[in-house]
Write a protein that binds this DNA or RNA. Structure first.
Lengths: 120, 120
DNA sequence: ATAATATATGAACAATCAATCATATGTTTG
DNA sequence: CAAACATATGATTGATTGTTCATATATTAT
């Protein structure tokens, strides 16, 4: 029987205060959860995934990527902007050309982990 | 100077046929890339991220999650449906109550990796 | 059987987003 | 300087998405 500290709703929640406290305590702050969702959102588009995969093997310029994936230059540029603001790719300017490469190894790791889940 | 096999566009692409071949060869099939994007899309919402975090510590029923996160039962149910179809959570029915828990460890790993990227 | 409870589902609406088109910026070449 | 080229950006549009509200389904209790 729940004691006076317990708020009984749907028969379960708050029946075990310690579990609730544990869940609440380990929950990161809202802003972090929001940022995390934003990060995954960047991965959540097949065009951007393709661009990242293309950059797995080589540094490529915008035009290269567009040709390789059969996309318009504009579409690629817009998506690179998203990837860049998520710090997943980084640009290197060389004259009028801009080469993009993966920003760090988290990109590879995350995609690899995702693939594992898909393929299991 | 590019040889006859090279198609010169924007000055770079197809200048090095081997790089292009390498990029093309390691690129997974379109359907897999699409599925991968779909998976990340599931992680790409702060409500769903919150639900997953709540399930890190404990198996919870729909009503528990709703109360814990200050959401309506309907909203939670709709999102659990998305998480379930992405095989990120699994239900366990007990009478009229349905308890949800994380489907496997990829969820934890992926979120942990994402957090690393956010926090660096 | 009826009421109460927990969850699921369908329709509707506002918000977000990716692609497109047109154009701007910036760099090199003649 | 003007033309050509690589990339970036802004506006628009069709499509997708998360929440809400109302209701349906399923299980338990009276």
């Amino acid at each position: 029987m729940p004691d006076s500290n317990d708020v009984e709703r749907c028969g379960f929640l708050f029946v075990h205060q310690d579990t609730v406290r544990q869940v609440t305590e380990q929950m990161p702050e809202d802003e972090k959860l929001y940022d995390l969702a934003e990060l995954f959102k960047v991965f959540g588009d097949s065009t951007r995934i393709k661009i990242l995969y293309a950059l797995f093997e080589a540094e490529l310029c915008v035009c290269d990527i567009a040709q390789l994936l059969g996309l318009t230059q504009s579409a690629v540029s817009h998506q690179l902007r998203v990837l860049k603001s998520g710090r997943l790719v980084k640009p290197r300017k060389e004259g009028k050309t801009v080469f993009y490469s993966l920003a760090d190894d988290h990109v590879r790791t995350l995609i690899a982990q995702g693939m594992e889940h898909i393929e299991e």
